[in-house]
Simulated assay, not measured.
Amino acid sequence: MDHVVTCLACGTVAGEGAAFCEQCGAPLGVAPALPVVAVEAADPVAAAVCRACGGSIAADGYCELCGEPAASARDHWSELPSAQVGGVCDRGRRHSKNEDAMALAVSGTTAVLVVCDGVSSVADSDIASLAAARAARDVLVKGSTPSSVGTWSALLVTAAAAADRGIADAIGDMAERTEPPSCTFVAAVVDGPTVVAGWLGDSRVYWVPDEGAARQVSVDDSAANEMIARGVPRARAEASPEGHAITRWLGADAETVVPSTATTRAQGPGWVLVCSDGLWNYCSEAADVADLLHRAVDAHGPAPDAIAAELVRWANEQGGHDNITAALARVDLDTVLTDDNAA
């Protein structure tokens, strides 16, 4: 079998003989220093090497040889708020920008994972998704004392509303826009063995136990899911041209921003996976997701950011047709979550 080289920064499969990644410009074979917290939306990165041709990046942020813009920190980042919680958000191989966003936190014994996927056909949806994810995370962290399922469900409704307001605050006046920026929303609160999820759109929450059957906790708000409800096989519905049309979302044109909620309770150790469709496009069934995640754990160990990076790398290897986000929280009934960044 030929030796396959992948970029350690973004997971892109490298061309034969390449010294630098054609996707992000990182030197091949050199592990990146990953930030612990997310970057601000659209913050530029002073990249020395062009991701397209290997040329030098000029002071204006464009390649001196081919004119390609420099890689942005928004293209690929990692968050690791604790040893049990982490994630990776990546542009993928085909899109010109990353319109996915995530915001992760650990507060006391509670983990919060939020993923938003900007609608790529509308300008500034990358700004909307990041503003929404962070606004929701902040609401959930403030309310993160051990609580009942009902209280968490109500707080997820409040968090979605805050996320919608966050979009409006970040974008500003949208009166003249016929298509305002919008995004999906999914959040999971992990409170001991209890996992409470809330969502609008088709970003997902999976529960993947170490042993036993995995399950999708969320239920997509999408045309594909409506087709499945009518008896169309899942694979055909999700592959149909209209299948990824979402029926609920966040943004100025949303009919409602009240999320659906669902709960599962772990009976043993396992993983909560929150992800965008850039991952599950290639691996939709819960059993297939579990197999992929378990193989990533076997290959890379228990660090959640390393597992997420492998999931992103795998999705890019399948084609990377969309932005990709994978966020994970470990549920181990013998281990208490701790915030490793606490003073």
Rank of each mutant, 00 (worst) to 15 (best):
M1S: 10
H3A: 12
V13M: 09
E22D: 10
C24N: 07
V36N: 13
V37M: 13
A41V: 07
P44A: 07
A46G: 13
A46E: 15
A47K: 00
R51H: 11
R51G: 14
A52S: 14
G54Y: 04
E64A: 11
E64W: 02
G67N: 13
E68T: 10
E68G: 02
A70D: 07
S72E: 15
A73R: 12
A73Y: 09
R74T: 09
G87Q: 05
C89T: 10
D90S: 15
D90Q: 06
R93T: 13
R93V: 08
R94Y: 12
H95R: 15
H95A: 13
N98L: 08
N98Q: 08
A101I: 06
A101E: 05
M102I: 08
M102P: 00
S107K: 14
S107A: 15
L113M: 13
L113H: 04
S121P: 11
V122F: 02
A123K: 12
S125H: 10
A128C: 09
L130Q: 14
L130S: 09
A131E: 07
R134L: 07
A135G: 05
V139F: 04
G143N: 14
S144F: 00
S148H: 10
G150Q: 15
A154G: 15
L155A: 12
L156Q: 02
V157S: 14
A160S: 15
A160C: 11
A163E: 04
A168P: 00
D169I: 10
D169V: 12
G172K: 08
M174D: 09
E176F: 03
R177G: 01
R177T: 01
T178C: 06
P181Q: 05
S182Y: 01
C183N: 03
C183L: 05
F185V: 08
V186Q: 01
V189D: 00
V190N: 03
P193T: 08
T194H: 05
V196C: 07
A197R: 03
W199S: 13
L200C: 11
Y206K: 09
Y206F: 12
W207V: 00
W207Q: 05
V208Y: 02
G212A: 11
R215G: 08
R215L: 15
V219N: 10
A224I: 05
A224F: 08
N225P: 01
M227N: 04
G231W: 13
G231K: 14
V232H: 04
A237E: 03
I246R: 03
I246Y: 00
G251W: 00
A254W: 00
V257L: 04
V258N: 05
P259T: 02
S260V: 01
T261P: 04
T264K: 08
A266E: 07
Q267R: 13
G268P: 06
G270C: 08
G270V: 03
W271K: 11
V272S: 07
L273P: 03
L273N: 07
S284Q: 11
A286F: 07
D288W: 05
D288P: 01
D291E: 15
L292S: 12
L292P: 05
H294V: 01
A296P: 00
V297Q: 09
G301Q: 10
D305W: 11
A306W: 02
A309S: 13
E310H: 09
R313P: 01
W314Q: 00
Q318R: 15
D322L: 07
T325A: 12
A326C: 14
L337W: 03
L337K: 06
T338W: 02
D339F: 11
A343I: 11
